[in-house]
């Protein structure tokens, strides 16, 4: 058996890779939310002086990566990989940002789970001895996601209370072999779980079982319990999905009520008219890069299990009546 493998789906890093620096950029609406003081840049305008929302999204992604590298003080030429993905078809935000950045590029797709998928892969590359510094990033944009997945912005339709608001923003993480806190200690790779949900306006309910599955697998594989963590945080289940996830974990005998949170619930105030909460690749990414990283440096949290969640649907699959397959990846981030 592989030396670093633990249980069925988890690896324990031998020399836990460090998170050397992060950067987060968010749109104006996110900049009015409860976490506004944690973000590095808050845009005044969703267009970001570009000609299209797609261009605006990739500019955020590129600038978040450049800022994270700058913050890490690692010379640009020493960044060995750029791992990124986003929600747009053929992950054009990531691909086009990589064109500008000129770094060796792995494009990944995990929908809104991209940030923890990327961190998991990045940490494996570092601990495997294949690189010393790399950067993981992802982005999403309300206006690009809405037109791809749902309706034109000016269409006068009503959103149901279970709908979520795609976060406009980008987050980037520099992962390094340098010994420095916080570190990525474990990574549990999720399986695709499909509990037969078909409502694309209720992603929280679709994704909750995937999040619970990977969290329970993580505890199983590592022999850890919720007591080992100060905070267990899912990506974008929002209020509906978080409620269901708590219930499912209770069924399985894990009570996480006091230490469980969700990025989609934290990023907006309830009165910001976002219905159930935030979603999108950037949701988990900016909360991780802004809030979590800074509060781990400050010592508020010393041990966090980040479980970003993604729904692997497309407009085609929904129109053809398919159910929604979902994924979640868990990474443990700790101050050692």
């Amino acid at each position: 058996m592989a030396a670093k493998k633990m249980g069925l789906q988890t690896v324990k890093f031998q020399n836990p890779p460090s998170i050397l620096a992060t950067a987060s950029i968010v749109g104006p609406k996110e900049g009015q939310g409860p976490l506004k003081d944690y973000f590095d840049i808050i845009l005044n305008d969703n267009m970001y002086q570009e000609k299209s929302w797609e261009k605006s999204e990739r500019k955020m992604l590129k600038e978040a990566v450049e800022m994270a590298i700058k913050n890490s003080k690692v010379p640009y030429s020493n960044i060995e990989y750029f791992i990124a993905g986003d929600l747009l078809n053929q992950i054009i935000s990531a691909g086009f940002a990589a064109r500008e950045l000129g770094l060796p590029f792995y494009g990944i797709y995990g929908a809104c789970s991209t940030i923890s998928e990327g961190m998991s892969l990045g940490a494996k590359i570092i601990d495997g001895g294949f690189a010393d510094n790399l950067v993981v990033a992802t982005s999403s944009h309300y206006c690009t996601a809405e037109r791809q997945y749902r309706y034109p912005l000016e269409l006068g339709n009503q959103r149901p209370p279970s709908a979520q608001w795609t976060v406009t923003g980008a987050g980037a993480v520099v992962i390094s072999s340098k010994p420095k806190n916080p570190r990525i200690t474990y990574a549990t790779t999720g399986k695709v779980i499909d509990m037969g949900q078909t409502n694309s306006n209720d992603m929280g309910s679709a994704m909750a079982p995937a999040a619970v599955d990977v969290i329970l697998q993580h505890f199983n594989d590592t022999k850890r319990t919720p007591d080992d963590y100060d905070l267990i945080i899912t990506g974008d289940l929002a209020s509906v999905g978080k409620d269901i996830a708590e219930e499912l974990m209770k069924w399985k005998g894990f009570d996480v009520t006091n230490k469980y949170s969700d990025c989609g619930l934290m990023i907006f105030h309830p009165e910001q008219d976002v219905h159930s909460g935030g979603s999108g690749c950037a949701c988990a990414a900016v909360v991780t890069c802004g809030y979590l990283y800074k509060e781990m440096i400050n010592g508020k949290y010393n041990s966090v299990l980040l479980v970003a969640t993604g729904a692997l649907l497309s407009t085609t699959s929904i129109q053809q009546g398919e159910t929604i397959p979902c994924i979640a990846h868990a990474v443990a981030i700790e101050n050692l």
Partner: peptide
């Protein structure tokens, strides 16, 4: 032609 959608 005259208008553009407003950013949200």
């Amino acid at each position: 032609l005259l208008f553009n959608p407003k950013s949200k």
